[in-house]
Design a protein around this nucleic acid. Structure first.
Length: 583
RNA sequence: GCAGCCGUAGCUCAAUUGGAUAGAGCGUUGGUCUCCGAAGCCGAAGGUUGUGGGUUCGACCCCCGCCGGCUGCACCA
């Protein structure tokens, strides 16, 4: 079904006529005093044509026929055109919304998206550093699929690199088999740290580690088997956490998967004159095609601009991550033919992404694939410094999730002493995991945020528990209705109270908000929307009795409640968050 | 040094990407349960959007200069 916004836009477009390339758009009004929707097109046209905006607005309105949906549009301020939706039109719209399994979200022109996120490292525990990539990427994948896109999720795990020389050496010399049995990742972490320290202080140990790395790289059977086993053990850990978080990947193609193409990638870069030798390494330099300030291959010092190349092959002949990333795009283009590849990583990698996106475009100017680096800031502790345990270690993801569930369980137990413990555990699980995910997705992803148990688990304010509770309250109404044997008259829509109309308007915006969220890769806007929806419902709930109302109001209000509950459940589901039936 | 990002209410954050009188939550504070879950609702106070200029009908948003913080800057990823 069409959104109200889309209907207004389709009627506005012919009334505007030639907009000179300006997009003719309508947006929900920020302030309801000015109506429900507004367009700024008259002011934009006035600027382009150096004409009077209000006069242009007048001309547009004269040609505009929106009578079936809106009151007479009004011109206000500098030249805004404001629309107030007729309540009959809202009723009609809501009638189709409530029977729409997509809750009014339009089917968009499908695109193929590859989303690369999470990317944990083999032989290391997943920790807080993986939270944002994992939750953001998963939310984007879910939203993309719901909108009708074809989404491929790929976990580009860190399964290759110099650390495996040390790991192979440590595996052969200091590993504790019993500990490896009990806690594989813990033991791998322990031997890696120990080996790393030995190598720092002992050059013979360092040489031995290098030798193991060379053997691994040259396909030595023993080291290859050790490496394979470390990957397998790590994957068990990843799978456990992803299952717990209900996150799925279509592919898990680690860095090592691309090894066969690295040499060819470097050769191609050299042959095309994009890369050349420098100090024994092979590097990509600036091609001077953009201003110096914008050039990712230049850096300025006191003597002016000098090269800041990207390495594609080290002096020892090994490739590095830029090369792997280039080979990865090539593979994805061959295999998936995507319209867009989305990388969800830490903001500190911005320079790297600018460089390798630029290299890719130089390498394949003919291939039209949009490359998006969706970056995010750090998670800080309440002291404003990077989030660590009291002893200063990184916080393991599994521990964090345990604590979230435990804290939520205690709150649920306290508020519902009558519920059996197993049910409190299950509710605690849903609330705890939801709270952590929501707290991560709520802030604008660019920029750091402070991790606070009290805030994210609060039942007040813009939190997952608050939204889950709004859902639960609605479900309680339906339980009560069922107990009382109340049946609804399907299809009854009877909107009279302001709170009812406000709620319908908010429900109608779900389908208008969602596409913009994917466009900008910003799930936080969905959080904001859901919070506003819950607020609108609570206001309605105060003002309008549901079960005690007479027909047709009762059936109509039950329909409003049902649509709200489904939108909350669906919206939270798109963020990877479940809802309980009671809490 | 250069580049990127950030700076919004006491605190934590929004702001539909250039739109109207910058909004929420927490905290402070005044109301509101005989009534579907008060985990709620209705209200009040709280701001020179770091700062100085500029662009324009209009700027938290764009441009230039400062101040402060975070991050990155060739053989780790």
């Amino acid at each position: 079904m069409e959104t109200i916004q889309a209907i207004l836009e389709s009627k506005l477009r012919p009334a505007v006529g030639d907009s000179g390339g300006l997009p003719v758009t309508v947006q929900a009004a920020q302030d309801t005093r000015f109506g429900d929707y507004q367009t700024n097109i008259a002011m934009q046209l006035a600027k382009a044509r150096k004409a009077n905006p209000r006069a242009i607005a007048q001309e547009i309105i004269a040609r505009l026929d929106v009578a079936e949906i809106s009151e007479t549009p009004e011109i206000a301020g500098a030249g805004f055109i404001n629309f107030r939706i007729k309540s009959e039109a809202l009723a009609t719209h809501f009638a189709s919304l409530v029977s729409d399994p997509r809750l009014g979200v339009p089917q968009v022109a499908p695109r193929k998206l590859v989303i690369d996120f999470s990317s944990p490292n083999v032989a290391k525990p997943m920790h807080v550093g993986h939270i944002r990539s994992t939750f953001l990427g998963d939310a984007l994948a879910r939203i993309g699929r719901f909108l009708g896109h074809s989404v491929v999720t790929d976990n580009h795990i860190g399964d290759w690199g110099t650390q495996f020389g040390m790991l192979c050496l440590a595996w052969k010399t200091i590993v504790d088999k019993a500990a490896l049995e009990r806690d594989p990742i813990g033991e791998l972490e322990r031997i890696y740290k120990l080996q790393n320290e030995r190598c720092k202080s002992d050059s013979a140990a360092m040489d031995a580690a290098r030798a193991e790395l060379v053997k691994l790289q040259n396909g030595d059977a023993e080291n290859h088997a050790i490496w394979r086993e470390m990957i397998r053990l790590s994957q068990v850990q990843f799978d456990t956490i992803y299952r717990r978080l209900d996150i799925n990947f279509d592919h898990t193609l680690g860095e090592s998967f691309y090894n066969p193409w690295l040499k060819d990638t470097v050769n191609e870069l050299v042959q095309k004159g994009i890369a050349r030798e420098s100090d024994g390494a092979i590097c990509v330099f600036s091609d001077s095609s953009v201003p110096e300030k914008e050039d990712p291959f230049l850096i300025k010092d006191e003597n002016g601009w000098k090269p800041s190349p990207a390495l594609v092959q080290k002096a020892d002949g090994a490739s590095n991550y830029t090369t792997t990333d280039l080979a990865t795009i090539a593979y994805r283009v061959r295999e998936f033919a995507p319209d867009e590849i989305i990388y969800v990583t830490d903001g500190r990698q911005q320079l790297h992404f600018r460089q390798f996106f630029t290299i890719w475009k130089r390498l394949h100017p003919d291939i039209a694939v949009k490359l998006s680096h969706v970056w995010f800031g750090s998670i800080l502790g309440e002291d404003g410094k990077p989030f660590k345990t009291r002893s200063g270690d990184t916080v393991k993801l599994a521990d964090l999730l345990d604590e979230a569930e435990e804290r939520a369980f205690k709150v649920v137990r306290e508020k519902n002493p009558e519920l059996p413990e197993t049910e409190c555990r299950e509710i605690g699980r849903i609330i705890g995991l939801g709270a952590v995910k929501y707290a991560d997705l709520l802030p604008n992803r660019q920029g750091d945020y402070v991790f606070s148990w009290d805030k994210l688990l609060s039942f007040q304010g813009n939190t997952a528990p608050y939204l889950q509770n709004a859902y639960v309250r609605i479900r309680a109404i339906f339980r009560k209705a069922a107990e009382a044997g109340i049946t609804t008259q399907a299809g009854t829509v009877n909107l009279t109270e302001p709170a009812e109309l406000e709620l319908v308007k908010k429900l109608a915006q779900f389908g208008e908000t969602l596409p913009a969220i994917l466009e900008d890769h910003r799930p936080n806007l969905l959080c904001n929307y859901l919070f506003e929806l819950a607020n609108a419902y609570h206001s309605f709930y105060e003002a309008c009795p549901v079960l005690k109302a007479d027909e047709p109001a009762r059936s109509s209000r039950l329909a409003l409640s049902d649509a709200t509950a489904r939108t909350l459940k669906t919206g939270l589901g798109l963020l990877g968050i479940e809802v309980p039936e009671r809490m």
